[in-house]
Design a protein around this nucleic acid. Sequence first.
DNA 1: GGTTTGACCCTAA
DNA 2: ATTAGGGCCAAAC
Length: 109
Amino acid sequence: MPDLNFKERVVELVRFIPRGKVVSYGQIAACMGQPRAARQVGWALRATGGTDLPWWRVINNAGKISIKGNWENTPQIQRQLLEADGVKVSDNLEVEMAKYRYALKGLAD
DNA sequence: GGTTTGACCCTAA
DNA sequence: ATTAGGGCCAAAC
């Protein structure tokens, strides 16, 4: 449904991510038909800022957390949330993408 | 309208 | 493996 705003679509998509799985920004962008709009996904998540949305399950393609740290949400918080979901995060804020990656296939709006 | 800014991604050296 | 540069597109100014 293209009627929704960009971040609305991102939110809906992120909401589908099951517990214990992670997705990259690029995958979300690609799933909504814009494989080059990865940055906007991050922007959208920033805008949501602190809701019931599982934003912590979204990381970059390298399987690493990319937050700057200036916002309410910090990489440490994200790591805590991920571990709470059962996802192991290294001290370097890296996640085993190959293992926890979620396909997102068929979830296009 | 244009200009700037990113919680990114890809390619090349 | 790591660094540098360009591109991408939505939102804010």
